[in-house]
């Protein structure tokens, strides 16, 4: 198992390398001369050439790629042309919005989906099960940004409970910041929770027939205790797998949602960088997202060891 994990890690690093090349290529092949877009149409040929040289655009593609990659590996993400600051700082700053947003979305999704899915499975064909089924279908049909708009309409415009967008910053106070993130996090969480509910329900149903649940009841455990202590832990592998898969969509969803809610996060940074052809920022942010997805997927793999002791072989090592 340990060897398997190391092999998987190497595979993931190679994937990341391939992704970096792909990102670079896509950025380089994007239509339009970045220098021209940055300077506007009135720029003279001389200034244009000067900027191109400054950006390194006059150098061969491969060299530019290797320079970028070398920098990244040494922790130097380069400098944004539009903001005029190091990209690393930009990313850290924006991360203070995106990371809590994503964490909140995952947390909300789990807090909604797991109890709902477990209850739906335990009381199969009951009212909760019906509600869970409807929720799952609605969630699949409604994408996150559309959900975001609906939530804004309801909670901000109609009820006035939450801000419709914007972010006061963490210096404005922990709860104020959290409050601003609640609606966008919910918009991200609801579609994911609907799928997760479905997965949880199926996974729990699969273990409900197991003898060890009956054995738990034979010890005198109540139905509820047997469900939560014995069924649910054994149903978590598919749930965590789905969470890992959903993380990719969460990242994609965050880009959209940050724009819908006007949040100064990484997604918004990526969007702005794209419209301003701030190529280095684009590359760094996308690479960062890719690395994040890969790290999350690896953590999901590691979590299997924790969730299912049968996968931990070689007791001799411990």
């Amino acid at each position: 198992m340990i060897i398997l994990m190391i092999r998987r890690l190497v595979g993931l690093l190679l994937t990341l390398l391939a992704v970096s090349a792909l990102i670079f290529l896509v950025m380089a092949l994007l239509p339009g001369d970045p220098a021209a877009i940055m300077l506007g149409t009135s720029a003279s040929a001389d200034t244009l050439a000067a900027l191109r040289q400054q950006l390194g655009l006059d150098q061969p593609l491969l060299l530019r790629y290797l320079q970028w990659l070398g920098g990244v590996l040494q922790g130097d993400l380069g400098r944004s042309h539009t903001y005029g600051v190091p990209v690393a700082g930009l990313i850290t700053e924006r991360l203070a919005v995106t990371l809590p947003l994503a964490a909140m979305a995952i947390l909300l999704s789990v807090l909604i989906a797991v109890p709902l899915g477990v209850t739906a499975a335990a009381k199969r064909n009951g009212l909760v099960d019906l509600a869970a089924t409807l929720f799952a279908q609605a969630g699949i049909a409604v994408p996150a940004f559309w959900m975001g708009l609906l939530l804004i309409l309801l909670f901000s415009m109609q009820l006035g409970w939450t801000p419709a967008g914007g972010f006061p910053g963490w210096h404005a106070g922990f709860f104020a910041a959290l409050h601003a993130l609640l609606l966008p996090a919910l918009a991200l969480a609801l579609p994911q929770a609907s799928v997760l509910t479905r997965v949880t329900r199926t996974a729990v149903l699969d273990v409900l027939d197991e003898d060890f649940l009956r054995a738990a009841r034979a010890k005198g455990l109540s139905r509820r205790a047997a469900l939560w202590r014995h069924a649910v832990p054994n149903a978590m592998v598919p749930v965590v797998t789905m969470l890992g898969l959903q993380f990719t969509f969460l990242v994609a969803g965050a880009v959209l949602i940050e724009n819908v809610f006007n949040l100064p996060g990484l997604g918004r940074l990526a969007y702005q960088a794209l419209s301003q052809r701030d190529i280095i920022v684009m590359q760094d942010v996308v690479l960062f997202f890719a690395a994040l997805v890969i790290v999350v997927n690896f953590s999901v793999d590691l979590s299997y060891l924790w969730l299912d002791p049968r996968l931990r072989s070689g007791k001799a090592f411990s």
Partner: peptide, 22 residues
């Protein structure tokens, strides 16, 4: 539930299936 396990015990036919793997 108060009787099960404390006053009446049950041994299962399939020991492997009757134990929680986790």
């Amino acid at each position: 539930c108060r009787i099960r396990g404390s006053r009446i015990g049950l041994i299962f036919q399939e020991p492997t299936a009757a134990l929680n793997p986790a």
